[in-house]
Amino acid sequence: MKIFLAGASGTIGSQIVVQLVARGHEVVGTTRSATKTGALRLLGAEPVIVDALDPESVADAVAKAEPEVIVHQLTALSGPINFRQYKLMGAATNRLRTEGTDHLLAAARAVGVRRFVAQSNAQWMERTGGPVADEDGRIEPNPPADAAEAVAALRYLEDSVTGITWAEGIALRYGGFYGPGTSISTAPDAMMAEELRKRRSPIVGGGGGVLSLVHITDAASATVAAVERGRAGIYHVADDDPAPVRDWLPDLARVLGAKPPRRVPAWLVRALAGTAAVDMMTRARGISSEKTKRELGWTLQYPSWRTGFAKGLE
Rank of each mutant, 00 (worst) to 15 (best):
V113Q: 00
V210C: 02
A122Q: 06
L157K: 07
M1H: 05
G175I: 08
I12Y: 01
L172K: 12
G233W: 07
V58A: 04
Y235N: 08
D247L: 06
A232N: 05
I184M: 14
S160F: 00
P47H: 01
P242S: 03
G169E: 01
M1Y: 03
V237L: 13
I139S: 09
T165E: 14
V214M: 05
D159Q: 14
P47K: 03
R200K: 14
W267G: 09
T101Y: 12
Y178S: 09
F177I: 06
G230Q: 02
T292Q: 11
E26I: 11
P244Q: 08
A34E: 04
E290T: 09
A148I: 03
A310Q: 12
R270K: 15
K293N: 00
L20T: 10
A220K: 12
A153T: 05
A110P: 13
T162G: 08
A226W: 09
L88A: 12
M281E: 08
R263Q: 07
K291S: 07
V237T: 09
I164S: 04
T162A: 09
R294Q: 12
T75G: 02
D102I: 13
E295L: 10
G308K: 06
Q119E: 13
H72N: 15
S304T: 15
A147D: 06
T165R: 14
W298P: 07
A190S: 07
I139G: 05
E194W: 04
T292D: 13
T37D: 02
R285C: 15
T128Q: 13
G38R: 05
T30A: 09
E46C: 00
R138L: 14
P141E: 01
E68H: 07
T307K: 14
E26L: 11
R155E: 14
D218P: 09
S288C: 11
L96S: 12
G44Y: 02
A220D: 04
S14T: 02
T307D: 15
Q19F: 02
L104E: 07
N142E: 10
S33C: 00
A271F: 15
A118E: 05
W267K: 09
L40Y: 03
N94M: 06
Q15H: 14
E295Q: 11
Y302V: 04
E140R: 03
F4Q: 11
E290A: 14
E135F: 09
P131Q: 03
V264F: 10
D239L: 10
T275M: 13
A277P: 03
L105T: 02
E168L: 04
P144H: 09
L211F: 15
G163P: 06
G312I: 08
E135R: 04
S212D: 03
Q119N: 02
